[in-house]
Design a protein around this nucleic acid. Structure first.
Length: 961
RNA sequence: GCGGGGGUCGCCGAGCCAGGUCAAAGGCGCAGGCUUCAGGAGCCUGUCCCGUAGGGGUUCGUGGGUUCGAAUCCCACCCCCCGCACCA
C-alpha cells in the first residue's frame, strides 16, 4: 500500500515533469497573476508563511481549473541588516542565537560554522525553504525565481531603475529626520533594539526665545507656543546644572544635558560657562512680543533632562504653573535664598489668553479647585494638565490679547503660529524623548537629527489621493480591511528608503547608501514577468540600463537603439515587453495583517506611481498564525517550521489544517493535535473514496441519485463563491466536510455503495477538493481512470437545471420524520415494535399552500386568510376543520424565512403518502421496527391513539408502540 | 493613547451587516453502539439542563435600552489580538 508521503512525492514529481505550472502568455486565455510577498531568509519558512502562501496556492489552483492562465511566481528576500547582524552575532559566539539555529532551524554544525558569512546563511535558508515550498505542492513557476540584493545583478538593476524613476517624479527627497540614536552603536535604535522605552518617539518642542537684560536668550520648550501671550515668569531649577553656550551664533542658557542634545540636532554648540540654576534666578527678562519685565523664579519641579530645562509659566492655562506660583506666593520664605522681593511675586497675576466653553477667565485655576489639587507634587496635577490641554486644544479659541491670531481656534492656528514665530526668529525647536530610552547595549539614547537622509515622500497629498483611487478599484479580502488601508494611507509620512549597512542594492545616485528593505519589495512583481527571459537568454546586469526597463514597462524608446547598446536582440526585448503586458497587473497579493500598514500599503503607493496603467486588482489580508495558542517565537519554543510540519503530517494535511484554522482577519491557531486529526480525516476520505472506486458499478438513476447530483450543485456554488472571496476556510469546510455528509446520507439511504452515480459524484468532489488537498485528489483521480491531472481538470460549474428541489424537500422531510421519531423514542425511552406515520390530508395541504402564498405579501392575518379559504368550495365543505386548523399555521408561516417559503411553494404539494410508503423499508431498517403509513383521512386507517389528526404538511403525525 | 480586528454551548469556529428557519451549522474531542479487526478507517447515536410523544427551561464577554420578538440593532463598560515607523 502506498503511503501518503509516497503519493505526495509521486505527484509532485509528475507535475514537475509535465511542467504544468509553468505559465507563458496565451492570448486565448484570461491571465491571473497571484503573488505571495517574498520572505526574509534569516531563517526557515514556518507555518505562518505556510498559512498565507497556501491561501494563495488554493486560489491559484482554483483559477487554473476555471481555465485561467495562472502565474504563481516565487522569490526570496535577502535585503536588510538582520541577516548581516545575525551573521555578526554568530561570529561573536552568541549562544542563544546559535542554539536557535541549531535546535529550532535544525542547522548542522558544518553549515553553522559557515554562517559567519551572511551570504552563505541567506543561501542556506533559501535552499532549505525552497524544498519546503516544493514539498507543499505549491503550483509555482520556478523559472522566474530570484533573490534580492546586489548579489542578483539583474534584479538589482531593476531596483535602481525603480528608485531612479521615483526620484524623477519627485517622490524621493532628501531631508533631515529625528531618530532615537544610540551614541555607542552610532545607529538608530528601533523599538526591538531597546532595553527600555519601547514605543517612545521623538517629540518636537518649540523653543520660545526670551531675552535677558544682557541679551542672553532663555529658550523655553513648550508644546503650546500660543501661550506665549500669557507668560508671567520663567522657571529654572535652582539645584540643576545649567550652561551658557553659543548656539548657532546666539548666546543661550540651557541645562547642561540639553546642551549635549542640541549638539546632536544640527546645531553648533560651544559652552562658555557652567553654573547652577540658582545663579540666574531673580533676574529679569522680556518676551519677544512685549516690553514687560518678568522674573526668573525657582521651580523645583523643572527637570533639566526635559527639553532645555527652561520652562515658561502660564498660570492661567497650565495647572503646574499656577500651583508653583501659588506655592511661592503662600510661602515667601522660599524666595529668601534668591534675593527676590516677595511683593514682586505677590503681584504676579495669571494672564488669560484662551476662552474655552465651561470655563471662565483662568481655566487652570478653576480646574485645580474643581479637582482639589493640593500643590505641584499632587499626582492629580498631571491629570489636570492633560485634561485642560485636550479641552483647550480642541475647543479653545484665542482671545483678543493674541493680536492677529485672536478669535482663531487653537487647534487650527497652532502650526501657522509656529511657522510665523520661527520666521520672525523668536522661536526655534528641538526634539526630545518624552521618556528615557536605553539601547540593548545599555547606553542611554537621545534624539539625533540625521541629515542627508533619503526619503520616499508618502506624505505627498496628490500621491495619497491617487493611491486611494488605486485602493478603490481593487478588491480587498476581506473588505473590512479597506478602512484600515485608508487610515494608513492618511497616516503615512516620509519613509527613509536607504540605509548605511546591510545587504541590498546601492542607491544609484548616492554611493554609500543601500536601498532599504521595504522599498525594494514594492513593485518587484513586475520583475517576475521578465526574469524568465533574463535567465533563459543569460542577460546580465550590465545589459540592463534604465532604458531597457523603460522600454519593457513603458514601451518608451527606440528598440533598435536599445538593442544596439545592450546587445539584447530586439525580439527578446519585444518578448519581454509582451510578457510584462500580458501578466501585469497583479491580480492578487496576500499577506498577513501585520504587513498591511507598511508593505501592502507601499505596494499600492508605488504601483500608483510607477505602474498607473497596471494597478493591483486584489489584495488579501489574513490573521497571524499562533502556535498552541501563543504567538510563535523561537525563544518560546513553539516555533514550527514548514519542514517539521511536512515531516510529521505531509503536505495535504498541513495545507488543510492551516486553512481550517481561520479566515478573514481572525488569527488561526496551529495545534499539533488538531493537525494530526485532520491527517486522520484525510485518510478516512481516501478509504471512503476507495470504497466507492471498488463497489460503485451499477447504473442507478432514481430519486436519490437526483438528490445527490442536486446537492452537489449547491456545494459547487458555495465553494466557488467562497473561493472567489478568498474565504478559504469556508470553502474547504464545504468541499470536505459538507460534501462528506451528503455522501453519508446518500449511502445511508441506499444502504449500499453500488450505484455508479457515486463515482461521478466522487469525480466532482475530487475537483472541488483538489485546490486544498491536491496530492490525494490527484491520486484518486487517476484511480478513477483519468490519465490527465485533476489539477488541470475543469472546475465544476453550478448547473441550476440539475438542482432538484422536489428531491431536496423530500429528503428534508425524511430527515425531519426521522428526527421526530428518535426524539419521541428518546423521551419515552421505549423500544419500538411498530411505527405508524400519518400524512396530512389533501385539504390541509390546500390550506397550507394558500396561507403560504398569501404570506408572500407580508404577514398573514387569520381573518383574511379564513375568508380566502372559504371561497374555495372544497374547503368550505370541511369548514369546521379548516377553522380549527388554519390559525395554528399563521404564526408558523409568518416566521418562516423567505427562501424556505419560496422552495415550498415551488414544490407545491409534496406527495407525502407516497414518500412515506417508499421509505417504509428505510425507516424500518433505521429503527428496527415494523413501519406503517397512512393518509390521515383514508378509509383503511389504523390509528389506535387518534394521532392522525395532528398531521400537518411537512410534519406527518406519528404513533409508536 | 490612537487606529484596525475580535470575545458564541469542552476546543476550533459559523451565524451578526439585511432581528423571527437559533439550543444556535460544521469540524475536533469525548461517551456508547455497530461493523471491521493487519494497522488505520468506516457507519450510527448522544454530548447546556429537564422531560414516558415530537415538548419545556436557561444560554451567545458584562450591564442597560429599542422591539410582540435580540447572539444579531443602539448605548456604556470589561477583556484579547495586530499595527503605531528607519524594522523585517
Amino acid at each position: 500500500m502506498t503511503s501518503l508521503s509516497q503519493i505526495e512525492n509521486k505527484w509532485r514529481k509528475r507535475w514537475e515533469e509535465a511542467k504544468i505550472f509553468e505559465a507563458d502568455p496565451d492570448e486565448s486565455k484570461t491571465k491571473c497573476m497571484v503573488t505571495f510577498p517574498f520572505s526574509y531568509m534569516n531563517g526557515p519558512l514556518h507555518v505562518g508563511h505556510g498559512f498565507t502562501a497556501t491561501r494563495v496556492d488554493v486560489y491559484a489552483r482554483y483559477k487554473r481549473m476555471q481555465g485561467y492562465n495562472v502565474l504563481f511566481p516565487w522569490a526570496w528576500h535577502w535585503t536588510g541588516e538582520t541577516i548581516a547582524g545575525a551573521s555578526e552575532r554568530v561570529k561573536a559566539g552568541d549562544e542563544i542565537l546559535i542554539r536557535a539555529f541549531r535546535e529550532v532551524d535544525g542547522v548542522s554544525e558544518e553549515h553553522l560554522k559557515k554562517f559567519v558569512d551572511p551570504v552563505y546563511m541567506a543561501k542556506y535558508y533559501t535552499d532549505d525553504s525552497r524544498e519546503s515550498v516544493k514539498r507543499l505542492g505549491y503550483s509555482v513557476d520556478w523559472r522566474r525565481e530570484f533573490h534580492t540584493t546586489s548579489l542578483y545583478p539583474t534584479f538589482s538593476k531593476f531596483v535602481e531603475w525603480q528608485c531612479e524613476r521615483l526620484r524623477e517624479k519627485g517622490y524621493i527627497i532628501k531631508g533631515t529626520y529625528p531618530v532615537v540614536w544610540c551614541p555607542h552603536d552610532q545607529s538608530p535604535t528601533g523599538d526591538h533594539d531597546r532595553q527600555t522605552g519601547e514605543g517612545v518617539i521623538p517629540e518636537e518642542y518649540i523653543l520660545m526665545k526670551y531675552k535677558m537684560e544682557d541679551g542672553t536668550i532663555l529658550p523655553s520648550g513648550t508644546f503650546r507656543p500660543e501661550t506665549i501671550y500669557g507668560i508671567t515668569n520663567i522657571w529654572i531649577n535652582p539645584d540643576s546644572d545649567y550652561v551658557k553656550a553659543k548656539v548657532n551664533g546666539e548666546t543661550w542658557i540651557v541645562s547642561k544635558t540639553a546642551a549635549g542634545k542640541l549638539a546632536e540636532q544640527q546645531k553648533t554648540v560651544e559652552i562658555l560657562e557652567n553654573f547652577k540654576g540658582k545663579e540666574i534666578i531673580g533676574k529679569h527678562f522680556t518676551s519677544p512680543l512685549s516690553t514687560r519685565k518678568m522674573l526668573v523664579l525657582p521651580g523645583w519641579f523643572v527637570s533639566p533632562d526635559n527639553a532645555t530645562g527652561v520652562v515658561y509659566s502660564v498660570p492661567a492655562h497650565a495647572p503646574f504653573d499656577f500651583l508653583a506660583l501659588r506655592d511661592l506666593q503662600n510661602n515667601p520664605e522660599l524666595l529668601k535664598d534668591f534675593n527676590i522681593d516677595p511683593t514682586e511675586v505677590q503681584a504676579i497675576k495669571p494672564i488669560s489668553l484662551i476662552s474655552v466653553e465651561g470655563f471662565g477667565e483662568c481655566p487652570a485655576v478653576e480646574l485645580v479647585d474643581q479637582m482639589g489639587v493640593k500643590d505641584q507634587h499632587d499626582p492629580k496635577a498631571e491629570e489636570a494638565t492633560k485634561t485642560l490641554y485636550k479641552k483647550e486644544f480642541h475647543g479653545g479659541k484665542l482671545k483678543q490679547i493674541c493680536e492677529k491670531y485672536a478669535g482663531k481656534p487653537v487647534s487650527r492656528i497652532k502650526d501657522i503660529l509656529i511657522d510665523d514665530f520661527k520666521e520672525k526668529g523668536i522661536a526655534d525647536s528641538m526634539y526630545d524623548l518624552p521618556e528615557p530610552v536605553v539601547c540593548r547595549c545599555m547606553t542611554p539614547c537621545q534624539v539625533k537629527l540625521l541629515k542627508e537622509q533619503w526619503f520616499i515622500k508618502y506624505s505627498d497629498p496628490t500621491w495619497k489621493q491617487k493611491t486611494k483611487e488605486t485602493l478603490a478599484q481593487a478588491k480587498i479580502y476581506p473588505d473590512s480591511a479597506r478602512q484600515w488601508f485608508l487610515n494608513i494611507i492618511d497616516w503615512l509620512k516620509e519613509w527613509p528608503c536607504a540605509r548605511r549597512s546591510g545587504l541590498g542594492t546601492a542607491l544609484p545616485w548616492s554611493p554609500g547608501w543601500i536601498v532599504e528593505t521595504l522599498t525594494d519589495s514594492t513593485v518587484y512583481m513586475a520583475f517576475y514577468t521578465i526574469n524568465k527571459h533574463l535567465k533563459q537568454y543569460k542577460i546580465t546586469g550590465e545589459q540592463l540600463p534604465f532604458e531597457v526597463f523603460d522600454y519593457i514597462f513603458y514601451g518608451k524608446g527606440d528598440i533598435q537603439k536599445i538593442s544596439e547598446t545592450t546587445k539584447i536582440p530586439t525580439n527578446q526585448l519585444q518578448e519581454m515587453r509582451n510578457e510584462f503586458l500580458y501578466w501585469y497587473p497583479v491580480d492578487l497579493r496576500v499577506s498577513a495583517k501585520e504587513l498591511l500598514p507598511n508593505h501592502l500599503t507601499f505596494f499600492l503607493f508605488q504601483h500608483t506611481a510607477l505602474f498607473p496603467d497596471h494597478l493591483p486588482k486584489g489584495v488579501g489580508v489574513n490573521g497571524m498564525l499562533s502556535v498552541e495558542g501563543k504567538k510563535m517565537s523561537k525563544s518560546k519554543g513553539n516555533f514550527v517550521t514548514l519542514k517539521t510540519a511536512l515531516n510529521e503530517f505531509g503536505a495535504d494535511a498541513t495545507r488543510c489544517a492551516l486553512l481550517l484554522g481561520g479566515e478573514g482577519m481572525n488569527d488561526p491557531d496551529w495545534r499539533r493535535e488538531t493537525v494530526g486529526d485532520i491527517k486522520t480525516k484525510l485518510n478516512g476520505f481516501v478509504s471512503l473514496a476507495q470504497n466507492i472506486l471498488d463497489k460503485a458499478n451499477q447504473p442507478d438513476h432514481g430519486h436519490l441519485e437526483q438528490w445527490l447530483i442536486g446537492v452537489l450543485q449547491e456545494r459547487t456554488k458555495i465553494v466557488t463563491e467562497n473561493l472567489e472571496q478568498l474565504k478559504t476556510r469556508t470553502a474547504l469546510e464545504n468541499a470536505l466536510f459538507e460534501i462528506w455528509n451528503d455522501f453519508r446520507w446518500y449511502i445511508r439511504r441506499k444502504g449500499h455503495f453500488k450505484s455508479d452515480t457515486l463515482k461521478s459524484a466522487l469525480e466532482t468532489w475530487l475537483k472541488l477538493l483538489s485546490p486544498f488537498a491536491p496530492h490525494i485528489c490527484e491520486e484518486l483521480w487517476s484511480k478513477l481512470g483519468h490519465t490527465d491531472f485533476v489539477s488541470l481538470a475543469a472546475w465544476p460549474v453550478y448547473d441550476e437545471t440539475k438542482v432538484n428541489i422536489q428531491a431536496e424537500e423530500t429528503e428534508n422531510l425524511t430527515k425531519n420524520v426521522m428526527d421526530d421519531t428518535s426524539n419521541i423514542l428518546k423521551a419515552t425511552k421505549m423500544t419500538p415494535k411498530k411505527i405508524y406515520y400519518y400524512a396530512a390530508a389533501p385539504w390541509k395541504w390546500k390550506v397550507y399552500l394558500t396561507a403560504l402564498k398569501k404570506s408572500a405579501d407580508g404577514n398573514i392575518v387569520v381573518g383574511a386568510l379564513m375568508k380566502e379559504l372559504m371561497s374555495n368550495p372544497d374547503l368550505k365543505a370541511v369548514a369546521g376543520k379548516v377553522a380549527k386548523f388554519a390559525p395554528t399555521l399563521v404564526q408558523e408561516i409568518n416566521r418562516m424565512p423567505e427562501d424556505m417559503k419560496q422552495k415550498q411553494l415551488q414544490v407545491a404539494e409534496l406527495n407525502e403518502t407516497e414518500l412515506l410508503e417508499t421509505s417504509q423499508e428505510f425507516f424500518a431498517r433505521e429503527f428496527n421496527a415494523k413501519v406503517f403509513s397512512f393518509q390521515e383521512d383514508s378509509q383503511d386507517i389504523v390509528d389506535p391513539q387518534s394521532k392522525a389528526k395532528f398531521a400537518k404538511p411537512y410534519r406527518p403525525a406519528i404513533y409508536i408502540e
